[in-house]
Structure formats: C-alpha cells, structure tokens
Write a protein that binds this DNA or RNA. Structure first.
Length: 788
DNA sequence: GCAAGAGGCATTTTT
DNA sequence: TGCCTCTTGC
C-alpha cells in the first residue's frame, strides 16, 4: 500500500519513523547531544532546573526536550505550556520544533511569551476579570498617556511628580504581582505625598472603563483569575502536563506567581532553563532569586548543569569565568571547552572615545582584510549614547554597519498613528486611539475643543467618537470646530462601513490617503519623512498576512515586529542587553570605565546587587565572542557635553591576567600600566604625568579640557527617534553611486539620509562640506548624499 | 491654535 | 551637548 493511499497518518509517526518506532535504536533527535544535554532532554518527570551556561546548546536542548515529549506520546501538543520572554525566542522555538517533528507543532497553542499566553488566557475568561473579551492591550505609550490623564484629573503638580515616575511605580507593583490593595503601606508614600496607591487604583478603574489592560495587567489579571476561580485553575492545571520556561533567571515575581499557580497541579512537570550568571534585567523587575530558590520552591527538583561550551575559545571562557567568579550567591557552574587557547583578550587604553572608535574601526578593517565578514563582528556598548562615536567613525570611513535595538517598528509615531486610525475604525469606543488622531494631521482642533468634547462625552457617558457626532449637533462648540469634528466622526463611520467590504490593507491605504496623513508626510521636508512613508507602506504590506482587520489589530500590540535590514555584510552595533543570546566571531567591548561600566547610577541605586548585575552584563558581553574579544576604555569621555576623565573599569582588573594582553594607543604616550592593580590605577594620575603634558602639547587644540576638540557636534537629529529596530546604513550601494555620479559642485542642493537637505559649501576630492538646513555644517563623503 | 524659544534632563527596555 | 517638554507670544 502506498503512503498516499493510506488513511490518516499521524505526523508524529511520520516524523519519528527513523527512531521512535524502533526501540532498539536511539531516536535520531538525541544523536549528537552530550551527556548532560541528553539528561536534560530525558528528565521528564518532576521539577527540573537546567542551568545552561553561555553557549552550551540551550536552545537545542529545549526544543529537543519538547520534541521528545511529543514523540514519546507523553502529551498532546495542546497540553504543553512553553514560555519564552521574546516573540523572537518563541518563533525560533516553534520553527525548530517544527523542523524536528513537523506539523504537530501547529497544535502547540500554548507556546509563546508570558504576555501572549497570559493574554490568551485572559481573553478566554475576560468576564472574570471585569473585561470584555475584546479588550485592548495598551502599550507603554498609551499607558503613560492614560496615567497622565489620571494625574492631571487629580490636580497633581506634574512638575514635581512626573507621570512617568508613577508609571514606573505602577509597573513595578504589577511586576511584583501587587494589586492596589496589596501594596505595602510603607510604599504608599512613594508618590505625591502618599497618593501613589490611590492613583494606581484610579488608573485601574480607568482601564476597566476603557475595556483595556496594560502589559503588566496581562499577568496580574491572569493571576487574579486563577486565584479567584478554582475551577478555571484546576482546568489549566490538568491541561498542562508539561511546562517549560526559558530564561528563568529573568522572570519577575508576577510571572513566578503565575507559574507556581499553574504548576501546582497533579502533573508537577515544570522544567525551567536559565543561567543565573546571565540575569541582567533586575531593573525591569526580574528576580534572580527565582532561579536561585528553585530547588527550595520545588522540592525534589533535579538540577542539570550544561557546562560544555561550544562557542568560545578557552581563553575567552577563562576570562569570563574569572570575572564572574567575583560575584557572590551564584549557583555555580564550571564552563569548559576544548581546542586551542585562541587569542588573548586585548585590552586597549585610548585617549578619548573618538580615538577608541578609531582604533576599533581600524581593527575591524584589518580583520575584514584578513577575510572576516563584517557581520561576524559586533560592538557591544553599555549605553546607547556610546554608539554615536562609532556611527560617526563608520560613516566617515564608509564602513557598513547596522544598529540593533532602538525603537521597534510599532513604537514609531507614524505606525502608532496609523494603528490608532484603524483601532477607532474597528472599535469606535477606543478613546485613547481617538484622542491620538483627532487632530493628526492638523485639523484645527485645539485643546479647547477637545476638552469640550471630553466633558460632553463624560456627561453623556459615551465614547469620544459618539460624543463627537452628538456635539456637532449642538451649540457647544465654535461653528468651525463643530463642523470639523462632525465631519471627522462621519468619515470614521464611513470607513467603518467600508471595512466590511474592502480588504483591510486596501482600507488602510484609503484611510491614510483620505485622512490627509500621507499628504502631511509628503509635505514634510525633514530627513525622516520619506522613511516614515516607507514604514507605512510596510505596515500595509504586513497587514496582508492577517485574516481581518480585527485579527491584525489583535496581534499588533504584542507581537508586531518587522524583520528588515537583515541582509548584507555589516558590523553589528548594539547594547550589551540587546546582545544576549547572540554570538559573533569578534566582539568589541568599549567603554570599560568606572562609572560608565559598571554604571555609577546602578551602583548608587542598587549597591552591591547592582554591581553584580553589571558584572553579569560584562560576562554576557565576553561570552558572546567565539574567537576574540577586545576590551577598551578611554581616559577622557564627553558625557552630556562636558568632558570627564575616566578610570578603567574594575572589571578590567578582574580579568585573569593570563588571558589578557595590554595595548596602549600611541596617543597615551609612555604607555600605560598598573591598571590591574585595582586599588591604585595609574590612569587617574596620568594627567599629572609628563607624558600627559606632552600629549596635551602635541594635540594642541584637541585638548578636551579646553573644549577645542576638532570634531564638531555630531547631530543625529531626529533620525534616531524614527530609526528602525535594525537600522542599516547601506554604504556600499551609495558609494557605488558616487563613483559613477560624483562630481558635486559648491552651491548644489543635496539630500543626506541622516541630515536631510543641505547645500554644498566646498568640495575636497570625495569629501564635501555641506551646510544642512537642520543639522548644521558637516563634512560628509559624497557617497552619502544624492542631488536634491 | 500654532510656531518658536527656555528650561530641565540625561542607562540598560524581552512585553 | 542636544533632546524633549512646556511656556510664551503671535
């Protein structure tokens, strides 16, 4: 009988014909796993903690474990709860399991992020939380606006007590699983003379009225539903035969409570995977204690350590291990690897940040000449302002790079505006969305008109959109505003009707055009306007993947992300936080200076715990490197405009000497030593040394203390704000263009991706001096501009 | 209602 | 230094 003619065939059987069916042979998916990886895959009963060090094949273990559960028929796909922190991680897991077992992964409806799974639960039981199933999920921006409204309504001086402070406070409470009633009395006074909790309560009421939740609520409300409804809880407890949590070291208290509730059932098969040494999100509410305490929380838990590292050289691993050993209260692991020691960690001292960038750029070029791809190199910084130095340098050299991180697609203003239009059309009672777009583009509706509208809406007890229609029939407003508002409301009503007949991507186009939004951007001559239009097109394109407008909106708030700029051979530039989970041949770690890294602020606020988190961040940075890591620090750095001299980071001294090689830039005169003597770094006293004075004389006007640095202010302008998540400067393409086109003359109008429009002042070979309309005078390579 | 200026202020940001 | 927010003046 041919396969085609056979009746239904379980995809799992098909997937595991090779292994699972023949007991004598080991399943294929286990092949190639080392001893502890295998153990982690096969330890299915009872609580399990997998301590997965950096580069030890964690993801593989995780996915294989799930495949194993399904292959051995221990559970149906729908009985597995698998939680990650990011959509990316969830997507990857889904793909990799799919590759192992095929279509059965489709049934894994409980694989996702904490937030998306909690949202799913909450929608099923919305009424138990006082919500309608179609509740809106507000992101940070929306939430802050709402909090602002609450604060204003209470007549609180927002200057003294900024709404964001309250937002942070509320977020913090929610992360800890605290409803307004649970907030400890001692914390009630944290905002506006003890009104914090009252405002928290008011904010929650507003959310309920709007049928909305914020990110924190997703978990908090889910917890409340589980706590308050025994039968619902029981149902989930029975359902989830196996539970798996990735990055457990990053779970916050709310997530922990939620997991504990679900894990308290008959199955007791909770497996958490994580690395206490890579916990870097305490400032976002992550409780490293959760992972440290796991064995006590779940008695009889099996602890499996993955210590064989497949990523880095022994040197890198040794350096990282030596560094992290300074932390206390670790669960402890001993990572090991085989092979050649590899290059030592180069530690370089530079005169200032500009020179540091220059040195790194030249390292990059020389590695590239030796055949290493740019994409295999990364620069990991502590704070994003450090990126500027590098972007500046790369632009000048024409080195292709990409910035990873930054504002996400759906966080961009134009995307949020477009979404607000669609939200109002889909759900006329979405007041926050209505407020956002009622006067965007400008329709001549000012604060006074909006206020009157809000008063009317509140009195009548109707949403703003309905109120707009009503108020246009009254004498309450000036005739002009009245008409504008009425027309606007009617237009939305019309769009709403059209939405039933027209495919939603097309509807979006119509809305953007008819609302005047597109025209507004077309009329905008700033540098970023074209990019924004492009983003909107991308948004419309992405809508096609969804069945309906409602389905699309359902997904945006939680999982909207747009892959772009992935391709191309470019140097990666990102923060240390953004680098977690990634790996590169070569990693550059600049800015290792006391105060910057470790961050002074973190140490001030969190003391030793803060310092240890910074150290873990350094550990994460180092362990991203496969072949070589290069640490550097600068003697002088301009922070917020003023020059500061720096002392090398204590972390430099904590790198085991055997793995380190010291390099001093020529600008440092007389070299530099003794930094590893933590107590008395020479560096700080360099300023009094003869070498320093010589350096000062030699550099003349570049002396940072006289403010005479040769380099003028490098304004990024608004470009950064609207930068893509994965910003790409495609240098190659433009350079080619200039080779053929080139030949600019003084006086010509040009356009630059970053600086916008400007006029060429002078030409020196391929270097142009351009006076930009907005960004001032800059020297740029002609490949970066085009004729305007 | 809107555009330009003054003052306050600056980490990290998975959802 | 340079950005964002709020105020002020038309």
């Amino acid at each position: 009988m041919s396969i085609e003619s056979s009746s239904y065939r379980d995809p799992l059987d098909a997937a595991f014909d090779t292994g699972a069916v023949t007991p004598a042979t080991e399943p294929v998916y286990l092949q190639g796993l080392n001893e502890s990886q295998r153990e982690a895959v096969q330890a299915l009963d009872g609580p399990v903690l997998v301590l997965a060090g950096a580069g030890t094949g964690k993801t593989r273990v995780l996915t294989t474990r799930l495949a194993h559960i399904l292959a051995t028929r221990r559970a149906f796909p729908g009985q597995i709860l698998a939680v990650t922190f990011t959509n990316k991680a969830a997507r990857e897991m889904r793909e990799r399991i799919g590759a192992l077992i095929g279509g059965a992964v489709e049934g894994m409806q409980w694989l996702g992020t904490f937030h998306s799974i909690a949202a799913r639960m909450l929608r099923r039981h919305a009424e138990l939380a006082g919500l309608k199933p179609n509740f809106t999920i507000l992101d940070q921006d929306d939430s802050l606006r709402l909090i602002k409204q609450v604060v204003e309504a209470e007549n609180i001086d927002e200057k003294r007590f900024p709404a964001r402070t309250l937002a942070a406070l509320i977020d913090n409470w929610k992360n800890r699983g605290l409803t307004p009633d649970d907030v400890p009395a001692g914390e009630a006074h944290a905002y506006a003379f003890g009104q914090g909790v009252k405002l928290y309560k008011l904010y929650q009421q507003r959310l309920k009225t709007l049928n909305a939740v914020d990110f924190g609520d997703l978990l908090l409300e889910a917890i409340n539903v589980l706590r308050g409804n025994a039968e619902v809880l029981e149902d989930y407890r029975r359902r989830f035969a196996y539970m798996l949590v990735d990055e457990y070291q990053d779970t916050n208290t709310a997530q922990y409570l939620w997991l504990r509730l679900l894990a308290g059932g008959p199955h007791n098969n909770l497996c958490v995977v994580g690395d206490d040494d890579q916990s870097i999100y305490a400032w976002r509410g992550a409780e490293i204690e959760n992972i440290l305490r796991f064995e006590r929380d779940f008695p009889g838990a099996k602890v499996i350590r993955l210590e064989r590292n497949y990523r880095s050289t022994p040197t890198i691993l040794g350096a990282a291990s030596g560094l992290i050993a300074a932390n206390k209260g670790r669960l402890g692991k001993t990572l090991w690897t085989e092979g050649d020691a590899g290059e030592k960690i180069q530690v370089r001292a530079s005169w200032d940040a500009e020179e540091e960038a220059r040195a790194i750029a030249s390292d990059i070029e020389s590695l590239h000449h030796k055949g290493q791809r740019f994409a295999e190199m990364a620069i990991l910084v502590r704070a994003s302002f450090q990126m500027r130095e590098f972007e500046d340098r790369f632009l000048m050299l024409g080195l292709p790079y990409r910035v990873i991180g930054g504002p996400r697609f759906y966080e961009r203003a134009e995307i949020r505006d477009a979404l607000a239009y669609l939200r109002v059309i889909a759900q006329g009672d979405d007041d926050l969305a209505f407020e956002r777009i009622v006067n965007k583009p400008k329709r001549g509706l000012g604060e006074a008109s909006i206020q009157a509208l809000e008063v009317h809406a509140r009195k009548a007890g109707v949403p703003l959109l309905a109120a707009a229609l009503e108020i246009s029939e009254t004498e309450e407003l000036a005739p002009k505003a009245r008409k504008t508002l009425g027309d606007f409301a009617k237009t939305i009503a019309r769009w709403h009707e059209q939405s039933a007949q027209i495919p939603h991507p097309q509807l979006a186009e119509i809305v953007l055009d008819e609302s005047g939004y597109t025209d507004m951007l077309k009329a905008d001559k700033s540098a970023e306007a074209p990019g924004r239009l492009e983003n909107l097109k991308e948004l419309v394109r992405s809508m096609e993947a969804y069945e309906s407008l409602a389905a699309f909106l359902e997904h945006v708030s939680l999982v909207m992300e747009l892959e772009q700029g992935e391709g191309g051979d470019r140097v990666n530039l990102m923060t240390l936080h953004a680098a977690k989970g990634l790996e590169f041949e070569t990693v550059f770690l600049p800015g290792w200076e006391e105060g910057l890294f470790p961050s002074q602020r973190t140490m001030d606020e969190k003391g030793t715990a803060g310092l240890e988190e910074e150290r873990r961040l350094a550990y994460v940075g180092l362990t991203r490197a496969k072949a070589r890591a290069r640490v550097s620090f600068a003697a002088n750095r301009r922070i917020h405009g003023s020059w500061q001299s720096g002392v090398p980071s204590r972390f430099v001294g904590e790198l085991p000497e055997a793995h380190v090689e010291m390099i001093a830039d020529e600008g440092m005169y007389g070299g530099y030593g003794g930094f590893r003597d933590n107590t008395a770094p020479n560096f700080g006293s360099t300023y009094d040394s003869p070498g320093w004075r010589r350096a000062q004389a030699a550099r003349g006007s570049a002396n940072p203390f006289t403010g005479g640095s040769a380099r003028g202010g490098f304004s990024e302008g608004p470009a950064r704000k609207y930068a893509s998540r994965s910003r790409v400067i495609d240098v190659e393409a433009k350079v080619v263009k200039s080779d053929t086109g080139g030949g600019y003359r003084a006086g010509e109008r040009v356009f630059h991706q970053k600086f916008g429009y400007g006029r060429v002042m002078s030409v020196d070979g391929n270097k142009l001096e351009v006076e930009f309309d907005k960004a001032g005078t800059k020297r740029v390579i002609d490949g970066f501009v085009q004729r305007a």
